[in-house]
Design a protein around this nucleic acid. Structure first.
Lengths: 339, 339
DNA sequence: CTGAAAGCGCTTACAG
DNA sequence: CTGAAAGCGCTTACAG
């Protein structure tokens, strides 16, 4: 009933706990005979080291924390999958917490992870986060921290990102190249760095092509939902009948817009071209299929863990870590929502 | 730099570690003055108990494990969200692992969680799992275990489920009630209990209505994807032009089928009616919108954790636990893919 | 009201 | 090659 301990094995074999421990860990200063004996007994008794004791001794839990704004999102769940798959390979477990896009919750979750003494932390910031003291504190404490996707530029730590500005530029340029003259942007929320960068890329593409940047064509919204896409599609039809192209922050919203345009008989791409962002699997399924930017979530998760792992290892060996910015490639996936 | 310990506080205040510990935990046998002093110092020093030591002493980690077949699935990510939200309220953290629908991996993950000594385990079975010894062992060890959604009927533990058979019956009956005479079923994989039960509900509805059950109208497939839906829609048009209704195992597959039928000019619901399963948010977005069975994922996650919590508490108090089957309500959501 | 002491199960520096 | 001992940081039964 009670779990088997080193002591149990030692007593049964009439040797010391020290020797049992060493034998199990394959230390060379144990005789072959003893080692075999110990290992055999451990196996038959189904011995499993008490993780709590090991943690206490080694000050390491082989567990990392992950804070994510929202789990129920195709992109983020792909990232999670990437993180878990990689963590598993290295023998790490992942504790997942959600910030619900709230700064207060994010702070609280970070504190929780710290008090649990996870070995490292992976985080994608909440939309509501504009102050970064809580993150700086983690770093000052020497706890490895890697940010991904939604990051804070001024915080000195490793980051795994895409070049949102460039990707948005490419998307907008594609609209221009295919003949769009008046291009709107469904921007999303105000604060997060990726929304800012996508907006900047959009704007720069316009200016580089000697097109007018018109702020009234930029639509802000908090929630990235299908319904928001429908709503703004309606708004465009009401307010700006001359718009012939839209660059949308997220596929889900773009698909909402497409659905509404379809419903109203607006032809895509003849009347309006649309480019999304993220390459959600539904974007190839919708009619017309959606031209979009591929954002490699699974890959991002893998890279983020790998970097964190390096930093945890470096810390263990008391080596200095130089923060690294890892940028993943994005690709424009051309489909039928653009000419 | 080094974390503050009870000893640090005790030494600074010139009192014993015992008293500091008691004061911080609000034990009544400490003078008000001492308690106030200790608490204040702890706060200014930002004392956080060493979770590893607490775990070792209390044999409790306030952490649970969750094994899920696939994270990147709207339904499962909703469940995860429900679990995490509830766990947070009770001060528990959640370690998430994926079985990738593989029995071997599921066993391995379970073992990992056990060796980490989580306080309890939540699991939804892999499609590949047909042997349940690994689960029985967990229970025999006295570790609280609750299964949800994809369960094994013969394993004696608490379960949170829906009545898949009844829901499938309702879905099929709705097709019959709206005039369908020849109803196919996209069944999904062979093994999981929920696929079996949905199939049985479909069959029973046919028989209760004196309709012929034709095995050639039941389509098996391993992966529940959009593409599978497209493919089987084509198959139906080739093989069974008389089919006028389909009950599909999952919304995603149903939406794939709708897309293909739309493409081929097959009218929904005039030529073929379709009912899905799960009420994925895209099912109200597609044209025509999809009639489906609402499967409460978030709710299921919450209930599963609540039950696990009860059992962990009972175990702590050395009370017996009687396994409980919690069945959540499902509702048929009528939309435009049926008459 | 306070504290000395045992103990949770492990790891590892050290002695022999 | 083997083992006694210290110690990780906490909790708690017990004595005073």
């Amino acid at each position: 009933m009670k779990p088997v301990t080193l002591k149990d094995i030692a007593e049964t074999l009439g040797i010391s706990i020290t020797t049992v421990s060493k034998a199990l860990k394959g230390y060379p200063d144990v005789s072959k005979k003893t080692r075999a004996l110990v290992k055999e007994l451990a196996k038959t008794l189904n011995y499993k080291p008490n993780a709590f004791a090991v943690n206490l001794r080694t000050e390491e839990s082989k567990t990392i924390g992950l804070i994510i704004p929202e789990i129920v999102h195709h992109f983020f769940s792909s990232v999670i999958k990437g993180i878990i798959s990689q963590a598993e390979k290295k023998g790490y477990l992942v504790i997942i917490l959600q910030s619900n896009e709230s700064y207060e919750l994010e702070k609280k979750q970070l504190d929780l992870l710290l008090s649990k003494r996870v070995d490292g932390i992976l985080i994608s910031l909440a939309n509501g986060t504009a102050d970064f003291k809580h993150l700086v504190e983690v770093i000052e404490q020497g706890k490895p921290l890697v940010m991904f996707d939604k990051i804070a530029k001024i915080v000195k730590c490793s980051k795994v990102i895409i070049d949102d500005r460039k990707a948005a530029y490419t998307a907008t340029q594609h609209l221009i190249d295919t003949g769009c003259k008046r291009i709107a942007h469904f921007r999303g929320p105000l604060l997060p760095q990726n929304a800012i960068d996508r907006f900047l890329g959009y704007k720069k593409a316009l200016l580089d092509n000697n097109m007018v940047y018109d702020p009234s064509l930029v639509y802000l919204f908090e929630d990235m939902t299908f319904e928001v896409g429908e709503m703004f599609a309606k708004k465009i039809m009401d307010e700006h009948t001359d718009v012939d192209g839209i660059f949308v922050n997220t596929d889900l919203v773009a698909i909402g817009a497409i659905t509404e345009f379809n419903r109203q008989g607006v032809k895509i791409p003849e009347d309006i071209s649309i480019v999304g962002f993220s390459n959600w699997f539904m974007s190839s399924a919708i009619t017309p299929s959606l031209t979009t930017i591929n954002q490699p979530g699974f890959e991002m998760g893998k890279k983020a863990f790998k970097q964190l792992y390096k930093e945890m290892k470096a810390k263990k060996n008391k080596k200095e870590v130089i923060p690294k910015i890892i940028e993943l490639e994005t690709v424009l996936v051309k489909r039928n929502s653009t000419k």
